[in-house]
Each structure stands twice: as structure tokens, then as C-alpha cells.
Design a protein around this nucleic acid. Structure first.
Lengths: 250, 250
DNA sequence: ATCTCAATTATGTCTATACATATTAGCAGG
DNA sequence: CCTGCTAATATGTATAGACATAATTGAGAT
């Protein structure tokens, strides 16, 4: 069977692209439209293979992709079923601070408030989740969009994991950008919360004392070794994190 | 070539599982460890195929998966390259409110504050992103963890898209839970921000006026038809959204 | 030195087949 | 009616080969 048969003619069809992708999007559409409800058993590979006039591996590729995206579940012998969307997986694209500012057409600049190398204090060790003291770099800086303060950053860098960071001034590239470009990481965690600005934070961000601010705490690791821990503060009235998503992130 | 050769012996190796998965994780480890830095050209399929003593399709499967997870990029004829992590894709698992409360071992209950069916006002139409007036259901409720207020919810449901919602009281299942179980959706957006509680919100949430609160606005669509728009408010001092992630979400 | 074109090459996709494996249905026997 | 065996079946994974496609390289022409 060397020729590819025309698609089943009962559908308004986008014949472009690879066959496996088309099979995938056909099924995806039926699921998202509700035609195939959660729990519905979708046709077996053999049937789909005959429907589209292709090899089983081609159908299989489409189905494996659907499993990866969480839209279906498969059990041997039992068949493939449309899955119940259990949790909503929202993907937040956390871009570079500089890119974030420039994306809205403003001029980015950074202002280093302090930059100190020290042996980790107890508080530092807690933030980095380490047990023994070690050299760290502590940086406080402000990110400006034009003349307005876009964010205030409070960062710790583990100098054992990232010795090269010791020599940097961060006057051109912000620490986050440099780290992302130079240090490979394998895991990270964001903790997003709201807090009232205390006097220090209100001064840094240029907002009234007590104003609601969005705080994003991020820790990054390479394997089990911590790389950096950062707290980013944004004025609550102007900044928002936007997450766009589909069922289980396809 | 029907036998599977032993793995290349220079690595502490987890030989369990499928070959393609092992190839994938081998490469993944090398990238995450920094051994293969961004921009590095990884061995061509033919080489990998000889290294592991398997068919090209098997290597290909591993590489395709790595592309999907964003760790590598591939160009015809040029080869496969470790990609620069550009944006950090954070996956937030937004679970059910009830599950959220019960996950920390507390008793969940819901308190309906108001439930009104009406023709959409101008404000409603803006929230749902619709142009013409239509029947909507507006629900205000509080989610309790024990006796403490966990969240305050302000929800609009489009009764054209979800006519069945008109008959529900939401006294047992919260609106979000019912919707997720009964209405298929294809797209959604979260907007996360911080705000100071005004007098009404402070009363609802049981916090001081002016206290920082986390606001999560979520809109859900099925195709282009809006389903619901909800604003969830959490006390800023007790609640935080946690997002765990890996480079480009593998 | 530079431009153009064709050969080379790595990836992209698919076919056809094979065997493994988990699970279910059905049947036989207690 | 329940239990345990067996056969059927759908998926899981892999192989080997084929042709398509895009991009680079290098040879020959300008």
C-alpha cells in the first residue's frame, strides 16, 4: 500500500501537512467539540487505519501524541478512551524581564542597588535550601520600563554552582538573563503570592506603603544543586501574569 | 539486528524500560548536566543507531520526543541541536477548589451568597467578551476551609453555551467543579494579579480592608463561544500558587 | 573572487511486518 | 455461583526499508 488514499470525504478537511498530524487533529477536534465526550471509547487502531487508508504505525503515532497531551488514555486490550480533564494545566511563559518590558514598546534599563559577596547567612541557607555555609552573591536591583519601576528583584546566587557569577556587575544584562544563557538548569519552582508593600518595598517600587504587590519567588536547581533563588516584586495594579491554556496543555 | 546491545558502558545506567525512552533520557541527562551545551550538535541518527544497536525509527522516536519537549531543535541536513531555553514554560496545575482544600486535610464547604439569572449587562458582556445581550447566570460564593474563608468567587456563566446551568443551585458542588465535569472546553486564559481588598471584598474574605489579595481571573471558551468568566480572590498572606517546571516543560 | 547549480546528506514521514504484553471474555470444572 | 484456565484482542514497541525534502557543500562557470 504505497499510495495515500484521499481523506474520508465527510469532513470539512484541511489536507495539508502530515497524515499523522491530520489524524491527530481530527480526533482532537472531535474531543474538544464534545462529540466524543470524556469516557468515550475511540475507534481502535485497526479501524482508524482503514478509515484513513494508512499503516497502523501512522495511526499509532497520532494516538501516542494524544496520550502525551493528556487528551486520551489507553489501556491494552481495552482500547483508547477520552480522558476526564482532571486538573487544568496552565502554561505560564515566564519570559525575560528585558523582553517583558520591550514587548510593550518601552525602554528597558536596570539599576543595581547592591551587590555583595558573602558567606551564606542562616536566612540565605534557608532560601537556597542548603545545609552548609558557602559563598553566595546577593544582588538587589530594579528593572525600569522607561522611568517607571517595572519590578524589584532580590536575588541570591550560589557561587559554588555558578563560580563565574562572582566577576559580573550585571550593569548591562540582568542577572536572570545572564544565568539563563550561561547556566543549564533542570528544575525550577515558582511561588506566586500577593503582599502589602512595607516601607522598604514601597520605596523600591515607587508605590504607596501598603499597596498590593505581586511576588514571584523562583528557585532553580541543576539536579539537586541549587543555582539561584530570586524574589521578584511587581506593582499589583499594573502587572499581571497571563497564562493561556488548553485541556491538559496540548 | 534483533538483539539489543548492552548500553554504552561509560555511564551509570538505568536499563529498565523501553529502549527509545532510555535513549531519550540519556540525551536529556547530557543536556541538563551541561555536558551538551545549548547550540551543541548532537550525534546524527545514524551514529546513535549504531551506538545503541537499534533501528533508526527507534532513535527517531526519542529525538521527536525531545523536540516536543523543547530540548532540541532539528533542521534537515544540518542536524539536531541543543536549543537555547528562551522562555520558561511553567506549568501551573490549577486544581479544583474542593480538592485544593481537602489536599491540606481541611473540611470543604461552599456558601452561596447570591445567584441571579439575568440578561447580560454591559459589564457582563465585557467580561464574557460578547457583543450581543444574552441570558447569563451570575453567582457569588465563598469557599470555606473549615471555618476559614479559603476563597471568594465571582462567576458569570453564559446560559446560551451552557443552558443546563440554569437549573443548578451549586449547594453541593461548586460551579467550577460542575462546569469542568459537564462542559467540554477547548481554551482558557488565566490572569493573575494582586490587589488591595476594598470594603466589600474584605468583608467577604474576612481580611482587613486594604489587605493584599491574589486575584485569578479565568475565562473559558469552547471554540470561540465563551462558557464562563470567573474571578477568584484569595487572601494574599495565606495562599500561594505554586508552579513547578523544567526547561520548556518536559 | 563570486555566483550558480547539482550532488550529497541528515532529517521527515510512512509502510509493512513482527513479536511482546496486558486485559478481557468465555468456558470448564468444582 | 465462584474460580481458574485459555484464547482472543488491542495496544506497545521494535525492525528494516523506502522515498521525500530541505539545506549544505563543493565543483564548475562567470
Amino acid at each position: 500500500m504505497n499510495k495515500v488514499l484521499p481523506p474520508p470525504s465527510d469532513e470539512p478537511d484541511q489536507s495539508k501537512g502530515q497524515l499523522s498530524a491530520r489524524i491527530r487533529s481530527d480526533i482532537e477536534r472531535r474531543i474538544l467539540s464534545g462529540e466524543w465526550a470524556p469516557g468515550y471509547r475511540i475507534p481502535i487502531e485497526r479501524e482508524l487505519m482503514e478509515t484513513y487508508g494508512c499503516a497502523r504505525m501512522t495511526v499509532n503515532k497520532a494516538l501516542v501524541a494524544l496520550v502525551a497531551s493528556g487528551l486520551i488514555e489507553r489501556r491494552r486490550r481495552a482500547g483508547s478512551f477520552v480522558s476526564q480533564p482532571l486538573v487544568q494545566s496552565a502554561v505560564i511563559e515566564i519570559s525575560d524581564v528585558r523582553a517583558e518590558v520591550e514587548a510593550v514598546g518601552q525602554v528597558y534599563s536596570i539599576e543595581i542597588l547592591s551587590r555583595r559577596q558573602r558567606t551564606s547567612t542562616v536566612a540565605d541557607m534557608k532560601r537556597l535550601d542548603i545545609q552548609t555555609p558557602r559563598p553566595v552573591l546577593a544582588v538587589l536591583c530594579r528593572h525600569l520600563a522607561g522611568k517607571r519601576v517595572h519590578a524589584f528583584e532580590d536575588r541570591l546566587i550560589d557561587l559554588v554552582s555558578v563560580p563565574d557569577a562572582a566577576g559580573l556587575t550585571f550593569e548591562k544584562d540582568p542577572p536572570g538573563t545572564w544565568l539563563r544563557e550561561h547556566v543549564p538548569w533542570s528544575e525550577a519552582e515558582n511561588r506566586i503570592s500577593a503582599l502589602n508593600a512595607d516601607s522598604a518595598l514601597s520605596a523600591h517600587l515607587g508605590v504607596k506603603e501598603g499597596a498590593a504587590c505581586l511576588q514571584v519567588e523562583r528557585s532553580t536547581w541543576r539536579g539537586t544543586k541549587p543555582i539561584t533563588a530570586v524574589r521578584m516584586y511587581y506593582p499589583g495594579d499594573t502587572y499581571r501574569l497571563i497564562a493561556h491554556f488548553s485541556p491538559k496543555g496540548s
